[in-house]
Design a protein around this nucleic acid. Structure first.
Lengths: 174, 174
DNA sequence: AAAATTATGTCAGCCATATTGACATAATTA
DNA sequence: TAATTATGTCAATATGGCTGACATAATTTT
């Protein structure tokens, strides 16, 4: 234990700032999304499409409102990318069974395939990093990341796929 | 050990994808940057300003070219935000001592203060998450994040503050 | 010394993604 | 029937990226 750091007029109560981890998070996340970015480019898609496709694939059958809630973007921002994904046959919208105003979103086979292709390099990067770091306690990493999320939003983090597969799914005409 | 997962036509070689950590990284990083975002708003700055100020503060005296290299953006993208930071007195540019074409970038007191204010909530979030997760091996987390970065770029990760403080620094008129 | 290269700055324009506010339609609930 | 809700859409705006071109000053090469 160090004999109490040199007294100085710090921000707040002379609290040390963890610049190292702040910076590492920046670099790590940037490279983490660079993998799918390259793939998306060749499809004419961007990160926004990735996010939408990811969550539609992970939580098939979620409604537009739920998706907006998870992504925390506005309806208008979603509209453009969602429309493109639907038009190009990666996502289908089916009328909600109980509430016919709702549109449940499902990935098509094509959508699932792309979602997988995008996730694969990310997953590999994570796996390789865990191994390289000799991080034997994977659960601890998961707990840490979960704890980084705002408490109010942790519900979303814990609810993966919600339901089954829709009836008509094969392809989309609209 | 499970008796080999059910055979299926997976991507590549039936590799399991770690959707959980992929998603957690998304949520964690989003909330991680939400803290400074709120502060930046009140200054009329955005994330781009944050990144510039962060690295100028961390590596005082770096040149424009070095900054571009770290941020991996173009000169034109940097120009806008850097100009604003200089004009509003958060960053100063001093002519390079050896090579007078270069502009060394330094934070002013004001700039240091803002950099600190932005880093503080992020650092606190990290600290709280480490504690909450009971992550006793902080070094392992650091190794993991470092391993997430592309090997070619890890040099940058490891080189913190490079030099001393410039001569005239107190404030800026231009 | 002249020529080539380098570091920086700047202009003009484009794209992706986000925002707000307003309004329309259909379906559900009160 | 009236109010509310879920979704979609229009118009306008902001931010932060991009490319390409070009200018200036300083350094390095020839």
């Amino acid at each position: 234990m160090k004999p109490s750091a040199p007294k100085r007029a710090d921000p707040s109560e002379s609290e040390d700032i963890d610049f190292t981890l702040i910076e590492l998070l920046f670099f790590a996340y940037r490279d983490f999304i660079s993998d799918p970015d390259a793939i998306l480019d060749s499809y004419g898609f961007g990160r926004a499409h990735h996010r939408v496709l990811h969550f539609v694939n992970r939580r098939p059958g979620l409604t537009v409102a739920e998706l907006l809630d998870v992504l925390r973007i506005t309806k208008q921002s979603l509209a453009r990318v969602l429309k493109q994904l639907v038009d190009t046959g990666y996502v289908v919208q089916v009328q909600g069974p109980r509430d016919r105003r709702q549109r449940e979103l499902y990935p098509t086979k094509k959508g699932q395939a792309l979602a997988m292709a995008l996730a694969l390099p990310q997953s590999r990067r994570i796996r390789a990093a865990i191994e390289e770091a000799g991080l034997d306690d994977r659960a601890a990493l998961e707990r840490f990341l979960r704890a980084m999320v705002n408490p109010e939003l942790r519900v979303q983090v814990d609810e993966p796929s919600s339901g089954g597969v829709p009836s008509g799914e094969g392809d989309s005409d609209r």
